[in-house]
Nucleic acid binder design. Structure first.
Lengths: 288, 288
DNA sequence: TTGCTCCTCACGTCACGTGAGGTGGC
DNA sequence: TTGCTCCTCACGTCACGTGAGGTGGC
C-alpha cells in the first residue's frame, strides 16, 4: 500500500477548506469517508481523487445545503442532480429571507410607530348605557367568524324590516374571552337610537366603569392584548366583572392590511373587593 | 396565600402563547420565574400581573431576539430600553438577510450559468514554448499581491528601457501552490516576442503537456480549483510535474466584479510513471 | 375513582468548535 | 529526542420539542 497518493486529514482539510474535525464527523456520518483508515492507529488517509468531492461538499455547505441532502446526492441512489437539489434549496433560502423580511417589518413597526412594545395604553372610562339589538350564541373559535357574520346579517335584516337604522358599527361581547379553548359565549350587538329601541325590541346595555384600550394588528394575535390587559388590570387593583366588549374601529371594511386594524377592547371592572375573594369572571380556575 | 390570582403553568402558557416546557426553561434560566413555587409539589404558579411580561417576551422571541438580550432587558440593570435593543437586533437581522442574499446570488450563478458545481472543465493541451522576462521570488500569501505588483513594474521598466514591448499579459508560475502555507515560490513572467528575446535577456519557458482549465471567480477561492484539478489529474492517471502557470484572462483590468474574473490554470503533467513512485512536485508529503 | 395536569430527567435537533488526555511518525 | 500531527471522548452552542415515568388535585 503506497501512501504517496494519500493525504493526511490535516492536508486534506487544508486543501478542501473543511476542518479536520468536520472531516471526522463526515466520516462518521458516512458522507465522505477516507479512502483508507489505518486499523492500528485509526489515522485517516484520503486519496487525491477525493479532493474534488471534498471541494464540492465545501461549496454546497457554504450555501447552507443540509448534510442530509448532500448524503443523498453523493450516494447516487436518487436521480436528483445538483441542479434539482439547488433549485429546492433555493426555495428554502427564499423562505428564510421572507421570514426575515417579516421580522424586519415588525421591528420597524415598533420602532417607527412610536408606541411601546405592548401597544396597549389603558384608560379607565365610564361606558355610557347603549341600546342594542343582539343575538347570543355559543361557538368555537374556528366557527366564530361565520357565526358572527350570520348573526349580523340577521340583525340587519330585522332592523331593515322594522325600518330602523343601526346607530353605529357592531359591538361584540365575549363572556369568557380567556377560556376560548373551551368554547366561546358571544353576543353580537348592533346599537340603535334609544328612540327606536321599542320599535325593534332592543335591550339596554348598562353603563359601567371599564378599562379601555385600542389594539392594533391582526385579530389572530389579539389574545396578546387580552393577556397584557389582564395583567395591567390586576396591577391597578381592579377585577374584571362582566363580558368584554370589542368594537372595530378600523377593519377589513377600511383596509386590506390586517396589521392596520384597530380594535377597541373595553372590559368592565370594579375595585378588587378583597385579596382573597375570587374575582367574578376573571379568575380562570373558578368557573366552568 | 390565596391562589385566586395565580395561574398554573398551563393557563399561563395558554394566555401568553409560550409553551409550558419553555416556561420551565425560562424559570430555570432566570428569565421569567413564577411568582410562587410550591415547595412540596414543585408546581409553578404565575401571577396575573406577570402576563404582560410573558406577552412581551413572546413578542420579542417572535422577532428572534436572543434570550440573553431579554434577560438583560428584564433585569433592568442596564439602561437600554426596548428601542435600543430592537435597533441593535435589527442590524443583526439585516446582516442575516445579506447572508441569504449572497447565498441566493451564488445559487443563481450555478443554476443560470449552466456550468456544473465545479466549473472546471479540464482539457489536456500541449503548451507551446514561450520567451519571457521573469523575476523569481519567495513570499507569503499575505505579501503576494504587492510583491507581484513590484516585480511586474520592474519587468515593465526593463522592457521599456530596452525598447521592447510585452507580447501579452503576465504569466505567473507557482512551484508549490499546494504548500502556500509554507511560503510561496513564485516566478512573475512577461512574454516577449522571440525576435526580441536577446535584446532583453529573456529566457525560454519550455513547451510541455499540461492540464488546462479556466477558473471563474474571485482569487480568494481559487484554491478550490486547485484541489479539484488535482483530483481530476489523479483520476486520469497523470502526475503533475512542474510549476503551475496562472494567466489572467479577465481580471480587475476588465471588470469591477471579482465573481466574473477568469483565470487560466495550466499545470504541466506527465503520465504516472508507477503507482508507487513518488510524483514530482505534487505529492504533498514529499518535502519542501 | 377517572382523567387531567403537573413534576423531573433525559435525549434529540443542527452542524459544528473546543478542549482534555494520550499517542504515532519524522 | 523534540515538536507536530493525529486519535477518541466529552462537552458547549442555541432554544427549544418530545417523550418516559411518576405524582397531585378535583
Amino acid at each position: 500500500m503506497s501512501r504517496a497518493r494519500h493525504l493526511s486529514i490535516g492536508r486534506f482539510a487544508g486543501l478542501t477548506g473543511i476542518s479536520a474535525n468536520t472531516l471526522r464527523r463526515y466520516d462518521e456520518y458516512g458522507l465522505l469517508s477516507p479512502a483508507f483508515t489505518d486499523p492500528l492507529t485509526g489515522y485517516r488517509l484520503y486519496a487525491v481523487e477525493q479532493l474534488d468531492t471534498g471541494v464540492a461538499i465545501r461549496l454546497l455547505r457554504d450555501l447552507d445545503v443540509p448534510l442530509d441532502d448532500l448524503r443523498v446526492l453523493l450516494s447516487g441512489e436518487h436521480p436528483d442532480d445538483v441542479r434539482t437539489l439547488l433549485t429546492h434549496h433555493r426555495e428554502r433560502i427564499v423562505e428564510r429571507r421572507a421570514d426575515l423580511e417579516r421580522i424586519l417589518a415588525r421591528i420597524d413597526a415598533v420602532l417607527h410607530d412610536d408606541h411601546g412594545l405592548l401597544p396597549y395604553e389603558l384608560e379607565v372610562v365610564d361606558l355610557a348605557p347603549v341600546w342594542v339589538v343582539s343575538r347570543r350564541l355559543t361557538t368555537t373559535r374556528a366557527a366564530l367568524d361565520p357565526a358572527i357574520e350570520r348573526s349580523l346579517a340577521q340583525l340587519e335584516d330585522e332592523l331593515a324590516a322594522g325600518g330602523v337604522e343601526a346607530a353605529g358599527r357592531e359591538l361584540i361581547l365575549y363572556a369568557n374571552p380567556l377560556q376560548w379553548y373551551q368554547g366561546l359565549d358571544v353576543e353580537v350587538c348592533l346599537p340603535v337610537a334609544e328612540t327606536a329601541a321599542a320599535a325593534c325590541g332592543a335591550r339596554p346595555l348598562d353603563g359601567c366603569r371599564a378599562v379601555r384600550t385600542v389594539y392594533r394588528g391582526p385579530w389572530d394575535d389579539i389574545w396578546q392584548a387580552y393577556a397584557a390587559l389582564l395583567a395591567q388590570i390586576a396591577r391597578r387593583g381592579l377585577d374584571v366583572c362582566g363580558p368584554v366588549r370589542e368594537s372595530y374601529l378600523f377593519d377589513e371594511r377600511d383596509t386590506a392590511d390586517p396589521t392596520r386594524y384597530l380594535t377597541e377592547i373595553a372590559w368592565p371592572v370594579r375595585p378588587r373587593a378583597s385579596v382573597d375573594a375570587p374575582a367574578c369572571g376573571a379568575s380562570p380556575p373558578q368557573g366552568p
